[in-house]
């Protein structure tokens, strides 16, 4: 369990860093959805299942779709 927790925290930091580094905003949005999903699994480990459920529905579902919708109306690449 401890090993799983450490692995998930490292994965979380890695996905956050990947969101920061990607110049392609579409990839950034997809990696941000993965970030939300890893975070919701971590909240399940921290025994907060209602927050995990909400984050999985909102962070990985609604926010991603709305970011993608806005991306379709604006520009895809950073600078």
């Amino acid at each position: 369990m401890t090993l799983l927790t450490i692995f998930l925290v490292l994965l979380l930091v890695l996905t956050a860093f990947a969101v920061e580094r990607t110049k392609d905003l579409l990839s950034a949005v997809i990696v941000f959805a993965a970030f939300s999903l890893v975070l919701s699994v971590l909240w399940l480990i921290l025994k907060a299942p209602d927050v995990a459920l909400t984050e999985a529905a909102v962070g990985a579902g609604i926010t991603t779709v709305i970011l993608l919708a806005v991306l379709a109306k604006t520009e895809r690449y950073e600078r």
Binding site: S36, G59, V70
Partner: peptide
């Protein structure tokens, strides 16, 4: 400098 990236950044901060 990209505003879209900044919005994602604020989301990461709040998370």
């Amino acid at each position: 400098p990209n505003l879209f990236k900044r919005i994602i950044g604020i989301n990461v901060m709040s998370s």
